[in-house]
Structures are given as structure tokens and as C-alpha cells.
Design a protein around this nucleic acid. Structure first.
Lengths: 218, 218
DNA sequence: AATAATATTTAGGCGAACCTAAAAATAAAC
DNA sequence: GTTTATTTTTAGGTTCGCCTAAATATTATT
């Protein structure tokens, strides 16, 4: 079965919403795909006919197994292209999202397979998000938020949630990137800020707001 | 001004038709974009409003200066992606056209500029067609068809017109690719076939039909 | 449990890009 | 220079993805 770029987008967004919420509603999806609720209803009816979504009017909905597979395929393409853009073309991670958003809808399985090989089958994209393999399998790594780590133990940065240029800026200032080894020295109860030690660098303090966006492998 | 993928396609096709014919008609364009004449009329009116085409009802038409510029931009993207697919991902030239047809409509100037640099600013694509630079300038090489070359003089293959897999097959069999040095030993008047010598390989005979598709630098 | 607030769907419309069939203009043939 | 043949345009219709406004269902409040 063939899916338009627009359909793929809806499917991808439902997938991401399901990652974060128990229930997914039409309103949430409208917000996610930047459209109006009425348009979402139209699309849900279409996707239901294609059996990519389990949907009954006025109810919350879920992806079917095939819907899930399609979502993982789009996400795979998106993240492989992001990896390519950063690793081969030298983009910063905060520049690649919109371009990958277009590239992810190029419909050539053999292209993606070759791209994957060319990039040496990366398991994670430049933001630390896992790249599904060609069977839709995702490599899980146990990871925890900076705010939940044991004190005085060394961890490795594995993912960044906020991918804005402002965040990139801040991380660069502190010398933090994916793979950076760090240790939380102490946590201030007052504002939740953390004192961290990175490699041989001097001690730094991160606000809770920043810390909440950083994940480390366990 | 923004152009849809469909508009870009029409513009690109008009450009290519202008390369090969003095006059371009609606019927030719319909054939080229694989659509019906009525659709072409619709599009021509739209493109005229956008001032990318000089068009008067029932008359032949041409690209305006801006139309030309847009065509060169799309062609640049197409050929850079083809180069990428062959050079980096290892595709054969007869596999890349359809994929490049999709990739050429990705609308990020910075992406194309970086891709260009990554590929070392190639001046010709894998079929020997010139790649416009970011100002729309094309590197011209003087070239002639195999059937028109002086006898017993060595030339270098610079382009192949027919890009089918059958042609690729045949060329591979004869050991001919872009850059191959060859010499035409003699020409048979009867059927126009050519006896050619390639490097240290034994003499081969090419039909006129094949020879017509091979170009060499002068 | 009835009413008010919120979320979702229906109904009707719009623009893009295509289509077919009929009409009109141009080009060719006599 | 008519008439015929061909090409092109117009007219009207389709699908896709979106929209607004109105109707309806669900959920929350009292």
C-alpha cells in the first residue's frame, strides 16, 4: 500500500504521541501536525480504511500493527537523513530537522538501505534518538535523566531532548555532547540545580530546566 | 517566489525541450511531463502569471529569464543527487534517475550547497551531463558524436545520451565508460557501423545506433 | 441527573493538479 | 482560399488535503 507524504506525517505524529501519552486524541494530533481538528477527522477516517489506525468516532485512537510499522519506517528515514546531514555534510543538529522532514518522504527502500550502509548502520541519530533498523527494530538503551542519576558516579551522555539551537549553544559552552562523560557532584534542593564535573574541566552548575533535557546511559 | 514540485517539473521539462527544439508546443510538453494537453494549458497560465514563461494562447512558448534560472536550479539539484547516488552510495547510473527525480524537489539551498561541496563541486554528472553551479552557470565542453569523429585519432568519452540499463550493459561489455580513451579505426558505409579501438583491448565493432549515443571531448 | 463546557464530527467550500469531452483556433491539404 | 485535420483551449468534474462554521457527542460541574 502507498502512503502520501501527508499520511506519513500523521502516522509518524501518532506514533510519537503514543510514546508520550497513554491516550491520543484528535486535538493532540491536530496540534502535532499543525492543522485543524476537522482535518484530523478526515485523515483518521482515511487511515482507518487503510487499516493503519484503530479509530471509532469520538474515541481516542491507536496505530495498528501496520501503522506502527509505517511510523517506524518514516522515523528510520528521518533519523538516517539527520545522521547523514550532520555526519557527512557538517550541519549542526539544530539545523537538520526541517530538511529531514522533507527527505523522510522520499520513497525508495533501496535508497535508504544503501544510505544506512554508507553511514555504517548507525543505531542512534545525532540527538541520541534510536534509529529503527530495516525491520523496524529499535535498539533500546537503558537511560535516565540527569536529575535522577546517582551522585558521584560517572555516566555517559546519550540523548538530548530539546534540540533547539539555544540548547546546542548552551551545551557547547559547557563542552557537553553525545558521549561526554560526566558526574553529578551534588544537587541543590532549593532550585533543583546540579553541580556537575565533566572530564578534566572545572565544576559547572546546570539549572534543573537544562538538566531535565539531558539523558545518560545507565 | 515559491514553486511546487509540479511547477518545477514543468519548468525543467520546458528547459530540456528548448535544448532540443527550436519551438516548444503544448503537446510536446504534455508528452514530456506525462500528462494531458488540457493540464498543460492550466499550468502555462499559472506559470505565465508567475512570469516564468512567455506564453500567449495557441502560441508556442519559452522560458523567461527567471524561468531559465529556476530550471537550471532544479537540474543542478537533480544532477548533484545523481552524482551522490552513484559516487557515494554505489548505485549504477541506470538506477538513479527516478530517485533523483524525487530528491530534486527538496527545497533547501544550504543543503544543496553543502552537498555540492561534499562531492567536491563536480562539473559533470555520472552520465556526462554538466551540473550548473550555484549561479546557474554551465561548464561547456566541446564534444562531438562518435559518428562524427576523425578516424585514427584518440578521443575521450564524455557523455552517453541513452541512459538505460541496456545501454549500460552494452557499454560495460565493451569496457566503455566516461573518460575511456578510444579511437575510430574505420567506418562502414553500408550500415554506418564503426570499428573502434579502446586502450589495449581488441578491436570492436559498434552499430551506428549505439555510436550515436556516445559523445567524446574534442 | 441536568446543565454547562469542551472536544469532535459533519457539512459545505476552496485551491492545486489532474481528467474527459466539446469548442475554438491554427495549420495543412486540396 | 475553402475545407479538412490537428492542436490547443475551455468547460465542467474528480481527488486530495485543507479550511470555517454549525451540529453533535463526550466530559465536567454543580
Amino acid at each position: 500500500m502507498k502512503y502520501s507524504a501527508s499520511e506519513e506525517n500523521y502516522i509518524k505524529c501518532i506514533y510519537h504521541l503514543q510514546e508520550q501519552h497513554e491516550q491520543v486524541s484528535a486535538g493532540m494530533l491536530a496540534e502535532a501536525v499543525q492543522t485543524k481538528a476537522a482535518s484530523v477527522t478526515d485523515m483518521l477516517k482515511k487511515l482507518q480504511q487503510k487499516k493503519t489506525v484503530n479509530y471509532r468516532p469520538y474515541q481516542n485512537f491507536t496505530l495498528t500493527e501496520t501503522g506502527n510499522r509505517i511510523a517506524l519506517d518514516v522515523i528510520r528515514k528521518h533519523r538516517l537523513w539527520e545522521f547523514f546531514l550532520v555526519d557527512k555534510l557538517g550541519f549542526r543538529w539544530d539545523e537538520v530537522h526541517d530538511i529531514a522532514e522533507e527527505l523522510e518522504h522520499i520513497s525508495s527502500p533501496v535508497l535508504i538501505q544503501r544510505l544506512d550502509n554508507y553511514l555504517n548502520n548507525p543505531a542512534f541519530d545525532p540527538h541520541g534518538d534510536p534509529i529503527p533498523d530495516n525491520r523496524g527494530k529499535i535498539k533500546i538503551i537503558r537511560q535516565a535523566n540527569l536529575t535522577e542519576l546517582n551522585l558521584k558516579q560517572t555516566y555517559s551522555v546519550s540523548a538530548i531532548k530539546d534540540q533547539s539551537s539555544q540548547m546546542l549553544d548552551l551545551l557547547q559552552h559547557y563542552g557537553i555532547q553525545l558521549g561526554t562523560k560526566l558526574k553529578v557532584q551534588r544537587r541543590f534542593e532549593f532550585d533543583g540545580s546540579l553541580e556537575i564535573k565533566i572530564d578534566k574541566q572545572p565544576v559547572a552548575t546546570l539549572s534543573e530546566q537544562v538538566a531535565k533535557n539531558i539523558y545518560c546511559t545507565l
